[in-house]
């Protein structure tokens, strides 16, 4: 054992004391054990899926043959894709506006912007339902992907404040002299924005995009209230399948969703690291 490890833990080294180690252990257990069980039982060769019967890929096959589920999955990815793009643009512009300018009612705008983060999802869902049903019905029978418009709008409305918050935090560390330097060297306002401000915002934009994507992909409550009969998303579909019984098919579908989300997040983080490493290495 090294010398350091044998020394008594310091006052703040709680990670080396047993009560906290226990709590951390329990947290990890309750967080990940259900997920692992979910994944393991997706390979269970049993319809009722209560006890382990044997290994099979059957239910994955079933999932891929389930046209409704695949359609719902496609819908979810499409919605998440558009929601991410629109939220990043809208969020970034909001962040820049709030960071850069002073205008009457700025505090009100800031508060209003944070509202979707704090308002209970169920309220947002009901509000969206009423809005799209009574006040501004989204035209039905539109071709794909236009039929997803209502859900995309609903998702953007709660996702972009997260992007704006992340980007604004990033902007706080911006050195205004960089902007002045660009102008001093002959750049217009617009060039300065693209050449100096956007590169600085980039990590915030990537983090914000990841947030918006995952928020949209797994949103159930608001989507449930906004979705029409022909615009089922993946979480809503999984929920409807659950109403009949918890088959391994549901487990398999959920496992796929987990893998996709984790993979996309990993890719996003990897891209971000790469762009940071490029700065460090010649």
């Amino acid at each position: 054992m090294s010398r350091v490890a044998r020394e008594k833990p310091g006052p703040l080294e709680y990670h080396r004391r047993w009560p906290l180690q226990l709590i951390v252990g329990a947290t990890f257990f309750f967080l990940y054990f259900p997920l692992i069980i979910l994944m393991v039982f997706s390979f269970n060769d049993s319809r009722r899926n209560i006890v382990w019967q044997g290994f099979t890929f059957d239910y994955y096959e079933k999932v891929f043959k389930n046209a409704e589920l695949i359609e719902a999955f496609g819908n979810s990815l499409t919605i998440a894709f558009f929601c991410t793009i629109i939220s990043v643009i809208l969020g970034a512009l909001t962040a820049v506006m709030l960071w850069r300018f002073r205008f009457p009612g700025k505090t009100a705008v800031e508060g209003a912007m944070a509202l979707p983060i704090v308002v209970p999802e169920i309220c947002m869902g009901v509000a969206m339902l009423v809005f799209f049903a009574k006040i501004m019905p989204w035209p039905s029978g539109m071709p794909w992907p236009l039929n997803l418009g209502a859900i995309i709008i609903a998702h953007v409305s709660f996702a972009f404040p997260f992007v704006a918050t992340v980007v604004r935090a990033r902007l706080a560390s911006f050195n205004r002299e960089l902007e002045e330097a660009a102008k001093d060297l002959g750049a217009s306002e617009w060039r300065t924005f693209w050449d100096v401000l956007v590169p600085h915002m980039q990590p915030g934009l990537i983090a914000g995009a990841l947030l918006a994507f995952t928020l949209s992909l797994d949103d159930f409550v608001i989507t449930f209230f906004t979705a029409g009969p022909d615009t089922i998303t993946f979480p809503v579909k999984v929920y409807s399948m659950l109403r009949f019984s918890v088959t391994p098919e549901v487990n398999a579908a959920s496992t796929i969703l987990i893998v996709v989300t984790v993979a996309l997040t990993a890719i996003g983080l990897h891209l971000q690291n790469q762009s940071e490493n490029k700065k460090l290495k010649p």
Partner: peptide, 20 residues
């Protein structure tokens, strides 16, 4: 004349070298 049209250039206190 706006800053980008002036025949002067500046060395800033923080140097303001573009980090990216």
């Amino acid at each position: 004349l706006p800053p980008n049209k002036r025949p002067v250039n500046m060395v800033f206190q923080s140097y303001a070298v573009f980090p990216h």
